[in-house]
Deep mutational scan, measured.
Amino acid sequence: QWIQSKREDIVNQMTEACLNQSLDALLSRDLIMKEDYELVSTKPTRTSKVRQLLDTTDIQGEEFAKVIVQKLKDNKQMGLQ
């Protein structure tokens, strides 16, 4: 999976804004449970939030991952090649 192969780059480069947009999009599509949303959003640092989101992606699967990839594209953060 692309996200896993780029995990380190995503953790380093995903902005707080992109992270929040991803969470909002996942929530609005019922792809993330409120508990998982809280787990991510209550982490103390941006990098720990991104790591938690990516860990959740492993469990949730492809549809979940597609939303995150789309948000990275929207925010022009796909220089993660």
Rank of each mutant, 00 (worst) to 15 (best):
L27A: 10
L31C: 03
I32H: 05
Q21W: 00
D58F: 14
K49V: 02
I68H: 05
T45I: 01
L80M: 08
I10E: 02
V11W: 00
W2L: 06
Y37N: 07
K66T: 11
S5G: 11
T47P: 10
E62L: 01
T42G: 13
F64V: 10
V40I: 15
T56C: 12
L26V: 03
L72H: 02
T45Q: 03
V67D: 06
N20E: 04
E16P: 05
C18H: 02
P44F: 15
E8H: 01
R7Q: 06
Q60E: 13
E16L: 09
V69D: 09
I68F: 00
E8W: 00
D9Q: 12
D58K: 10
L39E: 14
L31S: 04
L19V: 10
Q13R: 05
K49D: 07
D55I: 11
L31E: 03
N75R: 03
R29P: 07
N75Y: 09
C18G: 07
T47N: 09
I32C: 03
T57R: 09
V50C: 10
E38W: 12
Q21F: 02
I3P: 11
S48H: 06
T42L: 10
S28V: 11
Q52E: 05
L54V: 02
E38Y: 10
V67P: 04
I59A: 00
Y37F: 08
D36V: 04
V11E: 07
V69W: 07
D74M: 07
T45E: 08
N75P: 06
L19Q: 08
G61D: 13
I68R: 02
V67M: 03
D58S: 14
I59K: 15
T42I: 10
W2A: 05
A65R: 03
R46N: 09
T15V: 02
Q70I: 04
L72A: 01
K34Y: 05
S41P: 04
T45V: 04
V69S: 04
P44W: 06
S41M: 15
D58Q: 14
I10F: 01
S28N: 00
I3C: 13
E16T: 11
N12Q: 10
A17N: 11
T15H: 00
I59R: 10
S48P: 03
S22D: 07
A17S: 12
E8P: 05
L31N: 02
K73R: 14
K66I: 02
E8D: 14
T45Y: 00
Q52K: 06
Q13V: 11
Q21D: 15
R46S: 05
I10R: 06
S28A: 14
R29M: 13
A25N: 08
I3M: 09
P44E: 12
E63A: 11
S41R: 14
K66V: 02
C18P: 09
R7T: 02
K66D: 07
Y37S: 05
I3T: 02
S5F: 03
C18Y: 01
Q52H: 06
L39F: 07
S22R: 00
D55V: 09
V50F: 00
P44C: 06
R46M: 07
T45F: 03
A25I: 08
N75I: 07
Q60K: 08
Q4S: 15
T47V: 11
A25T: 11
T57N: 03
R29F: 15
K49A: 04
P44Q: 11
I3S: 02
L72Y: 02
S28G: 08
A25H: 10
E62V: 01
V50G: 03
K43F: 06
E62F: 02
T42P: 01
L31K: 04
I3D: 13
L19Y: 04
L23T: 08
G79C: 13
A25Y: 02
E62Q: 00
I59S: 09
M33F: 04
S48C: 09
V40K: 06
L23V: 05
I3L: 10
V67R: 01
L26Y: 01
L26D: 01
S28Y: 10
E8A: 08
E38V: 10
E62D: 03
R7Y: 05
P44V: 10
N20H: 15
C18R: 04
V11T: 11
T45A: 06
L53R: 03
D55L: 12
T42D: 08
E38R: 10
K43L: 14
M33V: 12
L39R: 14
K34S: 10
Q60F: 07
A25W: 00
R7S: 07
T56I: 15
E62H: 03
E35L: 04
Q21C: 06
V40Q: 00
D55C: 12
V67E: 09
L39Q: 08
R46F: 06
R51T: 10
V50E: 05
K34M: 09
A17P: 08
E35T: 12
T42Y: 07
L23E: 06
S22V: 15
C18M: 09
L26C: 03
K49P: 03
G61Y: 09
N12A: 15
L39C: 07
S41K: 15
L54A: 08
S5A: 12
G61S: 11
Q21R: 09
T42A: 13
N75K: 05
W2D: 10
E62K: 01
A25F: 13
L26M: 03
I3A: 03
K34C: 11
T15L: 02
E35C: 07
T42V: 07
R29C: 07
K34V: 10
I59C: 13
C18S: 10
T57Q: 14
D36Y: 04
L54E: 09
R51I: 10
D55M: 13
S5D: 15
S28D: 08
A65N: 07
E62P: 06
D74W: 06
D30F: 00
K43M: 07
L39P: 03
D74T: 09
T57K: 14
G79R: 09
S28L: 10
T47C: 10
T47S: 13
E35A: 10
A65L: 00
S28K: 15
L27F: 08
C18I: 07
L72I: 01
V40S: 04
L27I: 08
S41T: 14
D9C: 08
K66Y: 01
K43I: 05
D58R: 11
Q1L: 07
D30A: 12
N12I: 06
E63K: 06
R7I: 01
N20Q: 12
S48Q: 15
R51H: 05
S41E: 10
I32W: 06
S28P: 01
S41C: 13
Q70M: 06
N12H: 12
W2H: 03
E16H: 03
L53W: 04
M14T: 13
T42W: 01
V69N: 00
E35K: 14
D36F: 01
V11N: 04
L27R: 11
E63H: 02
N75Q: 13
Q60I: 09
I10H: 01
E38M: 12
T57M: 15
L31W: 00
Y37E: 07
V67K: 04
K66S: 13
D30C: 08
W2F: 02
R7K: 14
L27D: 11
D30H: 14
F64A: 15
A65S: 06
V67G: 03
M33T: 15
T15I: 00
I10A: 00
M33D: 15
G61N: 13
Q4V: 02
L31R: 02
T15P: 06
K76E: 11
V11M: 12
A65H: 06
D9W: 12
M33C: 15
L23H: 11
V50D: 06
N20W: 15
L39S: 12
K73D: 09
K43Q: 12
Q4P: 00
W2G: 05
S28H: 10
D9E: 08
E8S: 09
L27H: 09
V40Y: 06
T15A: 03
E63D: 09
